[in-house]
Design a protein around this nucleic acid. Sequence first.
RNA 1: GCCUCUGUAGUUCAAUGGAUAGAACGGAAGUUUCCUAAACUUUAGAUUCGGGUUCGAUUCCCGGCGGAGGUACCA
Length: 593
Amino acid sequence: MDIQKSVHQAVEKIYGQTIDPSLVQLQKTKKEFTGHLTLVVFPLLKISKKNPEQTALEIGDYLKANEPAIADFNVIKGFLNLCISSSYWVNVLTDIHKTAGFGTQKAENNSPLVMIEYSSPNTNKPLHLGHVRNNLLGFSLAEIMKANGYNVVKTNIVNDRGIHICKSMLAWKKWGNGATPESTGKKGDHLIGDFYVLFDKEYKKELQELQDKGLSKEDAENQSSLMSEAREMLRQWEAGNQETVALWEKMNSWVYAGFDETYKALGVDFDKVYYESQTYLEGKEKVLEGLEKGVFYKKEDGSVWADLTADGLDNKLLLRADGTSVYMTQDIGTAKLRFDDYPINKMVYVVGNEQNYHFQVLSLLLDKLGFEFGKGLVHFSYGMVELPEGKMKSREGTVVDADDLVAEMVDTARETSNELGKLDGCSEGEAQKVSQIVGLGALKYFILKVDPRKNMVFNPKESIDFNGNTGPFIQYTYARIQSVLRKAAEQGIVLPEVPASALQLNEKEENLIQMMAEFPAIVKEAADTFSPAVIANYIYELVKEYNQFYHDYSILREENKDTKEFRLILSENVGKIIKTGFGLLGIDVPDRM
RNA sequence: GCCUCUGUAGUUCAAUGGAUAGAACGGAAGUUUCCUAAACUUUAGAUUCGGGUUCGAUUCCCGGCGGAGGUACCA
C-alpha cells in the first residue's frame, strides 16, 4: 500500500536518516480504537531518541500536514492511530470496482512453472476422507498459485502396481465369479476395494488356521499359500505375463472409471496423470546411473543404498538385493519423466505429514542426481483427518468413504433447504443443483478453513451445520447480495461508476472497503504460506463485516440516491470478492439458495 | 531410544513479536410491519507447566509434561 511508503518517507524526513523499511510496522487498527491503520512506534525510538508518545505525535503531525490521505490521528501509548480520509477509500473502491479479476494476476508464457502433485491414490480401494482433504488442498493450492501469476500443471501419480492390486486380482479370480461393475451395479473402485477386503479376510483366516496347527505367527505368514499366490502374480505381472496383465488392465480400468466419478463430484481435475507402472523402471535406471557416478553405493548382497549421514540423515535403500524398486525409486523415476515433459521451476507434492521423512530424503536424492528443482521441492505436508471417535481404521470399518460423504452432504443440504422452504418454486433440476453446491460448499469449506499442517477433527454433523463459520453461511450471503442487485435492477437502477468522491462515508462503510482492499495481499499470503485457510478465514471475516453493515443499513430503501447507489456498489464488490475467493478454494456460489 | 510436527474457552478453529488473545458451535437472554431469519444483538468462558531473550512473548530459544507421526527392503 502506498501509505506504507509515505509513512516510511515521513520518518526518514523527520529524523534525517535512512531506515530499514521493516522498522515501519503498519497494521490494521484494532476495533476498540479509532483509526484505520496503526503505526507501532517502538522500533523507531532508537532513531527518534524520544519517548514513544512524543515520537508518535511528531510523525502524526507531519503526516497530517503532508499526506492528503491521512485525515487525522491519535496517539495511545506507543501506538499512532491514523485515520484515512473518506475520499481515499472512495478511490480504493473505484479501483476495486474497475479491476477485472481483482486480487488475481494472469500468468505470462515466461512466468515460472509450478507442478503440483496431489491425490495420488492406490488402485486397490476407493477414496476416503483423507484423500478428500488431499484433493481439496491440492486443487485449491493450484488455483491460488494460478491467481498469483504462476503457470500451473496439476498432476496425479497413480499407484497402479504392486502387491496390493495383486491381492484384489487374486481374490476376484478365486471368488469373484466374473463380477463386473455392470453385473453388480457397484462403482468400479468400490468393487475392487471389496475384493481387497475379501483377500484380507481370507488371509487372516488362513493365518489363524496355520497358527492353530501350532505355527508361530511369523512361520504362518511365510507359509501362507494365499500370500505366495499373490506374490507369484506380481512376478508374473513384472514378467509381462499376458493373462495377468490383461486382468490387471481390466480391473484398473474399472477403478479409474470410479475415481473419475469421485473427482468429478469433488470438482477437481488434473492436467497430466502419471502411472507408477510406467515410471518405476525409469527410477531404477536413474539409480543405477547414480551408482556409476558414485553418488550411491552397493552392498555385498547387491542392494543399492544412498549414504545421507553427511546431511544428518541415515542410509536409505534404493534397490533391493533382487533388483526390484522401492517407493523412493519410483518417485525418482516419476521426477525424471516429469522433468522430461515440463520445464518445472518448482515442484509441490501434496502428501500427508506421515511422509515428511520420505520427502526430506527425496529432496536430497534428486539434488544429488542433478535435478534443479530437487533442493527447492516443496512437500506440502498436511495433517491427518480424525473423527470425533478417534482415528479412522479400515480394519474397524470406521473409514469415511469419499462417495458416501459427498452424497450425505448433498442429501442433508437438500433436507435442510426443504425444511426452510428455500426450494419452494424450484424445479427439480434447480433444487438438485443448489443442494449440490451447498452440500459440497459445506464440506470443502469445513476442511479448507483449517491450517493444513494441523491434524483436524472432522465432525460430519458440525460440517453440515449451516450457521457460523461455514461455507453455506458465506454462500447464503452471496445469494442475498445477488438478490439485492436483482431487486435494484427491477427498480431501474444501473451501476456504472462509483459515485462522487465527495461522499462522506460512515465507519462501517470504511471498514468494509478497507477489508476489501486487503484481498490481493491475502491471496499472495495464501500462496506464500501454501494455505487456503488464509483465504477461507478472510472471506468469513469479510462476510461478517458485510452482514453487520447489511443489518444496520437499509440498502434499497435509502432516500438519498447517491448513498443508495454507493451501497449497492459496495454490495456488488463484496459479492465479487466472495466469488473470486471461493473460486480459489474450489467452491461454487449460487445466485439463489 | 532417536527424529519431526503439535498443545489456545466445554468443543472446533483464528491471532506478520504489539494495545484488553479473536470467532463459531454449544450454554444463558433477546430481536421479525424490514431488500433471503441458513440472519442479527447481549452475555459467561481459554494461551499445558517452568525458565530465558525483549520496551513488549500464544508467537522466538532451552527444559519438563501431554498428543500425533516417522524410524532403512510397505507404498
